[in-house]
């Protein structure tokens, strides 16, 4: 087995190089309920992380894993940078639930990878677009025994606008999000 190439930080100078035009609008071949996932990314002192690269990958509205693209961009993938307030926003469709190879059921979720200066390796996780009681059988939810930790991965539906899901990410310290390794 060859050794994998080590990870290094994305550094502070990526935005112009890596961002896509309309990278905040996730494309799919079919229709679905359009939603926005938005929130802020914070460091261990509670300061906003203004230079993170925030990427998302998800199933379509029917729970199908996307393949192909619209000619200009791949389906199912979002890519933005956080702004000076640490804020990101991704406009996408509400993902359906889907099954794994062992017929386990994955709750509606979006896979998230965050790169930033000071992150020598990306952090990866999955954010749930369903309330706690609806995700109990999800493989990741089952792997997290502490409900307070699990709550760090649940996006809250905005009471004033049901199309908006709010999810803040703390990289370190109190309220630190659960990050995963495969």
């Amino acid at each position: 087995m060859a050794k994998p190439t080590p990870s290094q930080t994305v550094g502070p100078f990526f935005a112009r190089e890596l961002l896509w035009g309309d990278g905040d609008k996730v494309l799919f071949p079919g229709q679905g309920d359009r939603i926005t996932l938005t929130g802020r990314v914070f460091d261990g002192a509670g300061a906003p992380i203004f230079d993170a690269l925030f990427e998302t990958w998800q199933a379509d509205a029917a729970g199908k894993i996307p393949s192909g693209g619209d000619g200009a961009r791949p389906y199912g993938y979002g890519r933005v940078s956080t702004d000076t307030d640490g804020r990101y926003a991704i406009e996408t469709v509400m993902p359906g639930s889907f099954r794994g190879p062992g017929s386990e059921t994955y709750a509606p979720q979006i896979s998230v990878t965050i790169f930033a200066r000071g992150l020598l390796k990306a952090v990866q996780t999955r954010v749930f677009l369903a309330p706690l009681e609806a995700i109990k059988d999800d493989p990741l939810a089952r792997a997290i025994s502490d409900p307070d930790r699990l709550r760090t991965l649940i996006a809250a539906r905005d009471p004033g606008d049901p199309k908006i899901y709010r999810w803040d990410v703390r990289l370190r310290g109190a309220g630190e999000a659960v990050f995963i390794e495969l």
Partner: peptide, 26 residues
């Protein structure tokens, strides 16, 4: 890294069908 490195251990989880697929670049 001092304020940005996660302090909690990573949670190990089996790859989902999303992890073994990936975006296709036209």
């Amino acid at each position: 890294t001092r304020l940005r490195a996660p302090a909690q251990p990573l949670v190990r989880v089996a790859p989902s069908p999303l992890d073994t697929a990936g975006p296709t670049f036209p």
